[in-house]
Amino acid sequence: MYARAQTWWTILRICIEERLVYRGDFALGTLMRFLPIITQIFLWTSVYAAAGQGDIRGYTRDDVIAYYLLTMVGRAFSSMPGLASGIARQIRDGEIKKFLIQPIDLLGFLLLARIAHKLVYYGVAIGPFALVFFLCGNYFTNGWPEASVLAAFVASLVMAFLLGLFLEAAIGMIGFWFLEVSSLLFVYMLFNFFFSGHMFPLEFLTGYLPDWLQTVAHYQPLQFLAYFPAAVFLGKIEGPELVEGLCVQAAWVMVFFVVCRVAMRRGFQRYSGYGG
């Protein structure tokens, strides 16, 4: 047990150090990532001015902007750049063999590596994030939510991280069967872009859907990557709905965790060790 904890600690430390190499590039990149928000502020200001009504499906203009900022936080947890393509590449060029030889679990390693990445990311990104949220504080018209809502927000963020990790890892595992997953990943990113709520609050869309699709939209997993945490923070999802949402999110985390495990086991069985 102790030895195992030590292994994990070492992996975590190595990954953190690896990430810190490029910290300057990192901080600049984070700040630049907020630039599109500026355009969104202007765009939605124009839209609300032309719409002539104070709110669209329960969101005022300030809400929409606050929502965008919050989805940035959600995505800071849930986005896993290069994870799926990395796994597929390791399968293709044979690097994945090391997990068959060394007594390290592939999923455990990925989890630790990503925790390390994220820790470093938050360490560097907290500056730009704090700055932008301070400058945009006025858009949060209700101020800070209550402690219980805040706790739910944090829980949904942590689960967003796990969901993002297992979802992308599952896509990467498809590489055991197809070798090249980049086109598949592209399709996933396309859906992710639209249905995670990254472009607009999902309420804007769901109002137009037929009933059966609304049910699908209500339970679909991608919303938990960006929309759900933001909507929770803004108080758009409350009470029993909030509890239900958190349960559905936890269920999706479990589902994709199991999918990953099964895919990894099956994948290793049919893996024929090509490449270096």
Binding site: L43, S46, V47, Y48, A50, A51, I56, F186, V187, L190, F193, F194, M199, F200, F204, L205, Y208
Partner: peptide, 20 residues
């Protein structure tokens, strides 16, 4: 596909407003 998504976004926006 990306362009269709982009277009979809604006169709959605224009369902709430007549003009930008």
């Amino acid at each position: 596909g990306w362009m269709a998504m982009n277009l979809g976004f604006y169709i959605l926006v224009f369902s709430y407003t007549k003009s930008i």
